[in-house]
Design a protein around this nucleic acid. Structure first.
Length: 483
DNA sequence: TGAAATGTTGGGGCG
DNA sequence: ACGCCCCAACATTTC
């Protein structure tokens, strides 16, 4: 507001992970100013450090940008796309178009915070009104602190404190129209960003998803219809009982406030409602942790884990990645991920436990694979999930908690529907054997046209043995962890 | 947001 | 009928 700009000096709205029109405070503030609005996206993967968007994220981004362009053009001012370092692009562009202000929605990744802080200073120096807004979180990470002004390390405490603090504000309406700048502005074409893979392996992703704001709203509607069955269904990967909103949330195609209020306002579903809202708060917890402990994307929160002797075995890693472990549920999950860019959360926990505890491979290798293959790859959520599984994070699984891939399979995919969908070579097996094919009588295997070791692998590790090995290895850390 | 090992109980088969 | 044993079924402890 400090600068006295003429009414024709445009406002730049810098889009990043808020690729939506609804409940976008930066966009609405720009529109309400009455000035021309230039929506801008800058493709600058180099600035993400170790965590450049992976292949699945790029696929998603391509389509999400396409959708956003259409929506913004409809409102009156199409999306401008640039490539290069955010700081120099923004300064040059602001100068070029004579913008008096740049608005954006906050991001919370450590390297992004550093970058944005710099950038804000530089813009202010240039006499530009640089302003950031909260579009992506229900609670700012610096708001939710304990009595000693420290971040919470236990979810339940965080949850209580956060929800007692404030009710997330209601979502705001989208602008009705945008005033385009007088002078035409040049933009890079989305296809020139080369976000899509050269070899087209994205058919499965295309079938499973509709990136963009419209797809996000559709998934929310579908989910609200089954919300009252969330508690019983959410753990069953063969049932569509989860929201499938994670990629939409990551790219900001729908705001957590919109979801929060939509869920709260549905009449039915008592227990399911609070359980789901809790999941949204887990996302907040993850962002808070990464904000307050910025090193944890790459290193364990609990320092004693730095010394853990993870194994190095590229062959085992690849068998896990490709879904060839010989454990049907594990393989089903890894293949669902490869095929659709997403994996059911219950199965994520199981395959993570398997990588870390059965194979003793470092959680960072799992995190990297998820980062590349998930359409919902999100640094905060990914970090929390993997550190939780490895037991080296906040409120993490105790070292002795080892998932049994067969028991989990029998419990949550009792009829083997999920397994049959993603591991079709086992679809001829009766459900008595489908969770542990290696025990199957010869004649049953023959009838199902399965030759273990050929058409489907033998288990790459014996779970009972692996569990014992993990317990001993992880127990070593305990005395160090105690004090 | 585990699972295995160990302990306890009680019904039923059987001498 | 009685005691003994076996072993589900459930509970508790341990990793």
């Amino acid at each position: 507001m400090g600068t006295s700009a003429s009414s024709t000096a445009p406002v730049i709205v810098w889009f990043r992970q808020d690729l939506r029109i609804d409940d976008n405070p930066a966009l609405s503030a720009a529109a309400e100013s009455g000035a021309p609005v230039i929506p801008l996206f800058i493709w600058s993967p180099e600035e993400e450090g170790n965590w450049e968007p992976g292949a699945a994220s790029r696929f998603w981004l391509h389509h999400s940008l396409t959708e956003l362009t259409i929506s913004l053009a409809r409102l009156g001012s199409p999306l401008i796309i640039k490539r290069g370092y955010s700081l120099s692009v923004l300064r040059d562009f602001a100068k070029e178009v004579g913008a008096h202000a740049v608005y954006w929605s906050r991001r919370y990744e450590p390297s992004t915070i550093v970058r944005d802080k710099n950038l804000k200073g530089a813009l202010v120096n240039d006499g530009v009104d640089a302003r950031s807004f909260n579009a992506n979180l229900l609670f700012e990470p610096w708001q939710v602190l304990n009595a000693k002004n420290e971040p919470y390390r236990v979810f339940t405490a965080f949850y209580k404190a956060a929800t007692a603090l404030v009710t997330p504000p209601a979502p705001i309406d989208p602008p009705k129209k945008l005033v385009a700048p007088v002078k035409k502005v040049r933009s890079v074409a989305i296809s020139d960003l080369m976000l899509l893979p050269k070899i087209n392996w994205t058919m499965g992703l295309n079938d499973a998803w509709q990136p963009g704001e419209k797809g996000a709203k559709k998934n929310l509607e579908i989910f609200l219809d089954v919300l009252n069955r969330y508690v019983p269904d959410r753990d069953c990967p063969g049932v569509s009982g989860t929201s499938r909103l994670s990629p939409h949330l990551h790219f900001g195609e729908i705001s957590p406030r919109t979801i929060w209020h939509a869920v709260r306002d549905t009449g039915k579903a008592g227990e399911s409602k609070t359980t789901y809202l809790k999941e949204l708060v887990w996302r907040e917890f993850a962002h808070s942790l990464l904000y307050h402990f910025p090193h944890t994307a790459n290193s364990p929160l609990r320092p004693e884990f730095e010394r853990f002797a993870w194994r190095n075995d590229p062959d085992l890693l690849e068998r896990w990645q490709k879904g060839a472990t010989g454990y049907p549920l594990i393989d089903a999950g890894m293949r669902e991920l490869w095929h659709t860019g997403w994996m059911h959360n219950r199965v994520r926990m199981i395959v993570a436990s398997f990588l870390v505890k059965d194979l003793l491979l470092p959680w960072q290798q799992g995190a990297e694979w998820f980062w590349d293959t998930l359409v919902d790859a999100d640094l905060a959520n990914n970090t929390l999930g993997w550190q939780w599984s490895a037991g080296c994070g906040a409120d993490a699984a105790p070292y002795f908690r080892v998932f049994n891939p067969v028991l989990q399979s029998q419990k949550f995919d009792p009829d083997g529907e999920y397994i049959k969908r993603w591991v079709p070579e086992l679809s001829g097996l009766p459900k008595a054997w489908i969770h542990h094919p290696w025990d199957t009588p010869k004649e049953v295997l023959k009838a199902a046209a399965i030759e273990l070791g050929k058409s489907y692998p033998q288990p790459i590790v014996d779970h009972a043995f692996a569990r014992q090995r993990a317990l001993e290895a992880f127990k070593q850390l305990k005395p160090v962890a105690a004090k």
